[in-house]
């Protein structure tokens, strides 16, 4: 993956703080954020802070991973429905691969997601951890 500081920086709101976008016309909320509304075609959206808690609606345990992700494998990828109904796709951590279930309550945590070699940029982002 080709990483540059600007590429990471401009996504900071959504990637570190879980900001989504809300359509100013139909009020649909999206994550990741969109500059226009994909469903009603309105071209004005606003930033919105999304709830940090949700539940698992689907998940997969990924054994065959892309290059550069070997050290994270197996990766549990979750499809999370937040408390306001917005969906987020992100890894699920701090849990055994056979202990994830439909409806499991999870909360957003900030974790390392990728290291660009030994001297490159380290990217952080949102993952989900079981709610205690």
């Amino acid at each position: 993956m080709k990483i540059s500081p600007a590429r990471v920086w401009r996504e900071k709101g959504s990637r570190y703080r879980l900001e989504g976008s809300k359509c100013k016309k139909c009020n649909r909320v999206f994550y990741p954020p969109k500059p226009s509304c994909p469903y009603c075609s309105h071209s004005e959206t606003e930033k919105i802070d999304l709830p940090k808690r949700g539940r698992v609606i689907s998940w997969t345990v990924e054994y065959v991973v892309p290059e550069g992700y070997r050290e994270y494998a197996p990766i549990i990828i979750g499809l999370i429905e937040l408390e306001d109904g917005t969906k987020v796709l992100a890894p699920i951590v701090d849990v055994d691969v056979d202990k994830v279930y439909e409806g499991m309550h999870v909360e957003a945590v900030l974790r390392k997601i990728f290291e660009d070699g030994n001297e490159g940029i380290i990217i952080y982002g949102i993952k989900f951890s079981p709610t205690i």
């Binding site: 993956m1 996504e11 959504s14 990637r15 990741p32 689907s58 998940w59 997969t60 990924e62 065959v64 991973v65 892309p66 550069g68 992700y69 994270y72 494998a73 990766i75 990828i77 499809l79 796709l89 992100a90 890894p91 997601i113 990728f114 990217i123 982002g125």
Partner: peptide, 17 residues
Amino acid sequence: EYEYIYGVSFPALNALI
């Protein structure tokens, strides 16, 4: 930016579905 960057493969996305 929001799938690949997490190491999400194409089979993984289909597995979720």
